[in-house]
Amino acid sequence: MSEQDPPQSPEKTPLPDLQQSVLDPETLSQLFSDLSELTEVLEVIPKAAAQGYVPECGTLTLEEGRALLLSGRVRGLQIRYQYQGSQWWDTLLPDAQSGGFRIVRIQHDFA
């Protein structure tokens, strides 16, 4: 950005693209394997409710988060990780209709 360019206001900053899909149990297992082997996992955050997270519970490992999600002891799980120079946030929620898990993925490029 040059000195002549006006700063971007928050309302003009484009929102990151969202990707959504439903994963079957086998694909969910492959996702956890890929996250473990191919990314740098930054945070694993359990979700207690649709609009909130579990109160501060310390740092969870990927496997601890997976166990909580599969056991139904949390409503969902958000996994934040670095991959190919970007930060990604995957939110996983059980999908009662399909018996799988809904994934919402967003890429954050923090400047």
Rank of each mutant, 00 (worst) to 15 (best):
R80D: 07
S71G: 07
I79H: 03
L23M: 15
L93H: 00
K47M: 14
Q97E: 14
E56N: 13
Q82K: 09
S36T: 12
Q84P: 01
Q84V: 08
R80E: 07
V74T: 08
P46E: 08
V22I: 15
T61L: 07
Q19P: 06
E43P: 02
I79L: 07
G76Q: 03
Q87D: 05
P16H: 10
Q87T: 10
E26I: 13
L60Q: 00
Q82S: 08
Q51D: 15
V104E: 11
S98H: 03
R75H: 06
L62I: 05
M1L: 10
A49V: 12
G65W: 01
M1N: 07
E3M: 12
R75T: 06
Q51E: 14
T39Y: 01
E3I: 12
P55L: 11
M1R: 08
R102Q: 12
L68H: 05
G85Y: 06
E63G: 02
G76E: 04
E37H: 10
L38R: 15
S36F: 10
L28H: 08
E40Q: 15
L38Y: 14
A48L: 13
L93M: 07
G52T: 14
R102E: 09
Q20V: 13
L68D: 05
Q107H: 02
R75Q: 10
G76T: 05
E56M: 13
V44K: 01
G58F: 03
P16L: 11
T39Q: 05
Q30K: 14
V54Y: 02
D34A: 14
R73I: 02
Y83P: 03
F110C: 08
P10W: 07
Q8I: 15
L68W: 04
E37T: 14
P6D: 11
F101R: 03
A49G: 09
V104S: 09
P46W: 07
E40Y: 12
K47S: 11
P16N: 10
Q87N: 04
A96N: 04
P10M: 07
V104A: 09
V104K: 04
D24S: 12
R66P: 00
A49K: 12
L60I: 02
E43Q: 13
L93S: 00
G58I: 06
D90Q: 02
P94T: 00
C57G: 11
D17L: 13
I103H: 03
Q30P: 03
P6Y: 10
E3D: 13
V54D: 03
P16S: 12
L93P: 01
F110W: 12
L38F: 13
K47F: 09
L35C: 05
A49Q: 14
Q4E: 14
M1Y: 06
L31F: 08
V104L: 11
L35I: 08
G100H: 03
A50M: 12
P55Y: 10
